[in-house]
Design a protein around this nucleic acid. Structure first.
Length: 241
DNA sequence: GTCCCGGTTT
DNA sequence: AAACCGGGAC
């Protein structure tokens, strides 16, 4: 993996012109804080959080995660949970049945596995309901490994910056994964990945991205486009960009 | 890599 | 009705 990372970072992908520490700095200044991001969160808790975060606002997950983990602190305890009770504790998030079966399958799969589960995404992905995104997220956030993460919001952000149309099947978008590797700093990559997620959620939003206030709009194909349209429609230059 | 699945959101 | 979202099947 060492060779691969090196190759990925050295090969000159389009230099996006974004500072390597931009997203870490964004995280320090504007990052969100969630209980599963605290140092006290266990790898199991982080894994559970990633399952709950699919299709769900993080703020809602924050309402149920602490009590859920307090009740089922380990895979063994969650695997032994009464399904109805587990369902109740996640039902306010929606997708109750899906999530309950995912949590049960996942927790019984790792019920007797010692920590660390694995620090290798290639192993983590073999777990039920763990795909490429979740495997990378756990490797990075739970085990401090240097791996990029690419979810839909990051595909959106990177595609806008580079000026490509988001690929059909967003999840195996090799080009975007390559760019995510090239953006990944060598230190504080956890903060970088959190920052990227938070930036995508708060600034580079799906519907009306805040290009006018965006600090990297000038480095972004979509941002430049929007900026030009704004200045034309207002018949004045937008000097700060 | 392409498509399907599921409940929720717009 | 369509988009969302990532896992899984093929």
């Amino acid at each position: 993996m060492e060779g691969e990372s090196e190759k990925q970072t050295k090969c000159t992908l389009p230099n996006l012109g974004i500072r390597r520490d931009f997203f870490q700095n964004y995280y320090s200044a504007h990052g969100r804080s969630f209980p599963w991001r605290e140092a006290s969160a266990s790898p199991f808790g982080i894994l559970v959080a990633e399952i709950l975060l699919k299709q769900t606002y993080a703020g809602k997950v924050a309402n149920v995660w602490p009590s859920l983990i307090a009740r089922y602190p380990s895979a063994g305890e969650m695997a032994a949970a009464d399904p109805d009770e587990l369902l109740k504790s996640v039902s306010e998030l929606g997708f109750g049945n899906q999530r309950t079966s995912a949590l049960l399958a996942l927790s019984s799969a790792i019920r007797h596995t010692e920590e660390p589960l694995s620090v290798d995404p290639g192993d983590l992905i073999k777990l039920p309901y763990v795909g490429v995104y979740t495997a990378h997220a756990v490797a990075c956030f739970a085990y401090g490994q240097r791996f990029p993460i690419v979810d839909l919001s990051i595909v959106r952000t990177i595609s806008r910056v580079v000026g490509i149309r988001p690929p059909k099947d967003i999840r195996r978008a090799t080009e975007v994964w390559n760019i995510a590797w090239s953006l990944l700093p060598w230190r504080r990559f956890k903060e970088h990945n959190y920052g990227l997620l938070d930036f995508a959620a708060a600034v580079c939003k799906p519907r009306s991205p805040s290009c006018i206030e965006c600090p990297i709009a000038a480095k972004c194909a979509h941002g430049r486009h929007v900026t030009i349209n704004v200045s034309e429609s207002q018949h004045r230059r937008v000097d700060r960009l």
